[in-house]
Nucleic acid binder design. Sequence first.
DNA 1: GCGCTTTGTTGAACGCGTTCAAGAAGAATT
DNA 2: AATTCTTCTTGAACGCGTTCAACAAAGCGC
Lengths: 242, 242
Amino acid sequence: MRPVTTAAADGPAGPPTEKPRRARGEQTRQAILATALRLFRERGYADTTMRVIAKEAGVAVGNAYYYFDSKEHLIQEFYGHQQEAHRAAAATVLATERDFAARLRGVLQAGVDANAPYHSFAATFFKTAAEPSSPLSPFSRESSPARDASIGLFREVLDGSTAKVDPELREHLPELLWLSWMGVTLFWVYDKSPEQRRTRRLIDGAVPLIDRLVGLSRLRVLRPALRQVLDLLDSVRRDDVT
Amino acid sequence: MRPVTTAAADGPAGPPTEKPRRARGEQTRQAILATALRLFRERGYADTTMRVIAKEAGVAVGNAYYYFDSKEHLIQEFYGHQQEAHRAAAATVLATERDFAARLRGVLQAGVDANAPYHSFAATFFKTAAEPSSPLSPFSRESSPARDASIGLFREVLDGSTAKVDPELREHLPELLWLSWMGVTLFWVYDKSPEQRRTRRLIDGAVPLIDRLVGLSRLRVLRPALRQVLDLLDSVRRDDVT
DNA sequence: GCGCTTTGTTGAACGCGTTCAAGAAGAATT
DNA sequence: AATTCTTCTTGAACGCGTTCAACAAAGCGC
């Protein structure tokens, strides 16, 4: 069993996965990436072979593997792009609306809007991301920056709103909202209705419900239940990855 | 609705996926299946090649494809086996326990127990099942018998219990419990803790919570919220597949 | 200029899942 | 027994993602 991607530190020549990229390499890298994403859109993920990507980008197959560990890793870049698109699409509603429910609904719908053009392609993408050991998994170490960014988006939803929330819940609510976004995404991937209407219906139906639950969080009868939820979250988060 | 297994009727030579199997073919089929499942357990899914399966089963590669459409379809059989194992493991607690929370907890833990030996292998299996277009998807048409059976298991949990439930909720609760089981399974797949302790902790934490919520369902303040949930479920189920 | 390391690039080769034309083995019909 | 039809079996071949030894180019200390 050899080290998977240690490279840079001890190996002679490892693929540059993060930090300092020279100009020449960066150009090739971008050419490959742009070609790949274009072809994914045009002909789908499965029908886009690494050989074609390389050919159209004007490089050899092996060269693509110098910059990207695998075909799947090309998706990860796409993933990042979409994250930004979501944030951009959500900016308007976050700047203008103060009501919690409206803000949440706006951000969720913005997410669906941002991803809509890639719905068919997203299924394949999702299949890959679902693999727990995959770096593409939304719960993986590698995804934690993107995940934190996304959770931050939902923190904005809450912080910029006029909602009155139980203080204990307030702390964990952004993460819970992000989880609900993951749920919406899951539903969206499986949604075969035209223009993903069912997903939008789900959002429209679930948001008032969440809003109501959040409002009820300050009710005395529900206190113990709330405590139970938060304790559960805590206990389950423990000893994450060994 | 067209017959799934036309083969014998109109086609010249289609693979017999279901109904009337001759003795000779059935024997080969079982040999391939048994060998495949054994090898999956022994060396994992990815490391078990179709060539090795065929070789160890004493047939040619192509022959395996006569009986199974793809390597993934071999998993589907495994899936069915596990469903039965879950039911069997749940039988004891369903026969002896009357308390709702205890029954639910027992059935969920039984599910984890039944799947535990295959945890590492399940990740790959899950990756495949996650593909929305895959017949392995728990939401697919092909899986609906298994799904209905599983929902039935949770109907037993409820029906055999002494729980007092809002009559409107009672109708949909089995499906909701099945959904929670899907959630537990999802969590379980991602659970890297030793012996999946976190999943068991999740169950232990979530069951009293569900129990409490179910109990609260008869509370007047929560009536509108309950209505909202059930309406949402209904509206989202509409126009399933075009 | 010259060696030396780092970075970038190549394309043949490997093993994989899968396909398919070819045919063998039985069963059914004549 | 001969013929025909269905069921079952074969293994070479295809295209895929991926690897790797080899080499080219660029940067760097001298």
